[in-house]
Design a protein around this nucleic acid. Structure first.
Lengths: 242, 242
DNA sequence: ACAAAACGAGAGCATCGCTCTTACAACTCA
DNA sequence: TGAGTTGTAAGAGCGATGCTCTCGTTTTGT
């Protein structure tokens, strides 16, 4: 009677069935990521994914209730991939060389974006369809930002931050947000440092998006060099020495 | 025999037919812009446009050979709209107050983007379909940039630019591009000023895109104030006093 | 007045996202 | 072991899309 008696068995069988389910779910996202890479987000089709897997289109809906849910899964994957390359790039640098860490992270994210343009567009480009802001994405989205936040707060706590001193103080309305950011990703940093860091962070993605979305066409030729230069400037604006 | 004999007539009759054609073309883009505003780029449908105009879908193809061509027309319109608000905002400021002009242009573009989010996404977001860089868009794209370039070069030529002095010199590979930009939109400015201005410009759109595409959700509450603050910092980085 | 070009309408093709029903397989549990 | 439950795949189908083609009609140029 009590379900607890069979708990072990239930779990075993569940994992038996859930295992193939998880495997199929993984394969769907993998095939979808392949289609995304070649066709872009607009060309991703559930029917084509099903076709490539030898399934019938309606079967996909057992795993993803709608096309948007598949896209959301890919978005989460994208955030995680960006977060991972950022973490790895940061880890290869000496902890005390903050500007170098910042540049390494910038470069890693840009390289990933250039290698996966459609995935980047899905994550940091315009929201695709009727869109929504799915809550599941906020966690993975913070992963890369956490890496950056640690660089800044490490530098701050080591007393290595050399503020440029050219910015006016941030608006009072920013204080509450700065407090939240200080707790999450920028421990110890004062408001003006947090504001500068946020500006830095958005400039990074503005740069990558401009390059990837064609705004630098016929404008900049050596984009890698210009990118590194601009990111170095932004890093200095945030106080990173070097 | 010679077509020149009938040049006047030909022109008159041509304008007779071409006038209704131009009018219909304009109406199509207008209806399409309405649909774009409510549904977004993904939901723009030639059939729906035709339906709203009382036409049959195939008739649209007499005016726009494909859906992408309609989108391209809307992109050109978007660039022009942004360029126009930038020009107007710049014109309302005293010519000598360069930082104020810069902030006014920033605010005007942001306001337009917030008022026309789907159009902004179409222009500065991820390229929609299999994408291409249509040549017809490069002219209108430069319109807003020209306004900004004039602010910087005006300030430079008036000797009012106060470089922050925190940036390393731009890479050598940037010299050629800087030369082209100097001729087009930044007359007289040296390479480092041009590089800083470009960084400024991309930071502006990075900021707007982050806000519009949801990256500031649960992060920044008073976005207008933070935007103005960050743009002021960026202006100072480019040397604008104020 | 007449040939050529432009045009709107309609039917049609392939494809899409998604729903519903049906048949089969695996699992549960007495 | 055998009956009942449940997850799954398959197929048909709906409404809609972008786009092509053909077929009369109108407008244009000579």
């Amino acid at each position: 009677m009590s379900p607890l008696c069979y708990a072990g068995r239930v779990n075993a069988s569940r994992t038996a069935r859930e295992r193939v389910r998880a495997e199929l779910t993984r394969e769907i996202t993998e095939v979808a990521r392949g289609q995304l890479a070649t066709e872009g987000a607009g060309g991703l089709s559930l029917r084509a994914v099903a076709r490539e897997m030898g399934m019938v289109s309606s079967a996909i809906y057992r795993y993803f209730p709608s096309r948007d849910d598949l896209l959301t899964a890919l978005i989460v994957d994208g955030y995680n991939a960006i977060g991972e390359v950022a973490e790895q790039a940061d880890a290869t640098c000496p902890a005390g060389e903050y500007a170098r860490r910042w540049l390494a992270v910038c470069r890693a994210i840009r390289d990933w974006a250039l290698a996966h343009p459609h995935e980047y567009a899905l994550v940091y480009g315009s929201p695709v369809p009727g869109y929504q802001a799915p809550q599941q994405t906020i966690g993975p989205a913070a992963r890369a930002a956490t890496v950056f936040g640690k660089i800044i707060s490490d530098a701050w706590q080591a007393g290595a931050l050399q503020p440029a001193g050219i910015c006016p103080p941030p608006p009072e309305s920013f204080a509450a947000d700065a407090g939240a950011l200080r707790e999450l990703v920028l421990p110890g940093a004062p408001d003006d440092v947090i504001a500068a860091a946020l500006g830095c962070w958005t400039a990074l993605f503005g740069m990558i998006s401009f390059e990837l979305f064609g705004q630098f066409e016929n404008v900049i030729t050596d984009r890698a060099a210009f990118f590194a230069h601009t990111m170095a400037c932004q890093g200095r604006l945030a106080g990173l020495p070097g």
